[in-house]
Amino acid sequence: MNWFQAVVIGASAGGIKALSTVLSALPKEFPLPIIIVQHLYPHSSSRLAQILQKQSHLKIKEADEKEVIKNSVIYIAPPNYHLLIEEDRTFSLSVEGPVNYSRPSVDVLFETAALAYKSRLIGMILTGANNDGNFGVKQIKRRGGYLIIQDPETAEADSMPKAAIAAAKVNKILPIKQIGPYLLQLVNRSKKGPNI
């Protein structure tokens, strides 16, 4: 059994490339669900899952409302909807207005994920040119979750990771290339228990 039960990722400008780098480092047997908010233009179509699928050994799909979250699947928030996690580990969607000028918003995902997974959650902030996720990382930390932030030096846009580092006591700051391998290692190590 793994200590950790899910990974949530927030990314904005430059995120597609950063996500490709992280996800391509994970094997087919990666044991957790990965749930992603990538900011997109509001009226863009939902091709992100297909684009990322080319880089990943894991199955990638857009999250559906009420869908039961499964291990070893990567879920993407649909464009123009907020993605929320219920405490019974299913997805909800909402069309409420943009949060931090964004829909989907990283904060909305992280805030609800923190309540659903508590200390069993890994939160990750990658490149981005705003500060969405700021409130969310605090909530994850408050519940005892683990935070990995992309090293702003290696980020195409550094304000989002910088803001996250300023907002919460993060566990690890890593260059983009090392994030995938580290995540895998962290999750494998956590089989022994929470003391990591």
Binding site: L84, I85, E86, E87, S92, S94, V108, T112, L115
Partner: peptide, 9 residues
């Protein structure tokens, strides 16, 4: 209602 949204609001 779906709880997560109600609770968040």
């Amino acid at each position: 209602y779906a709880k997560a949204s109600v609770k968040r609001r």
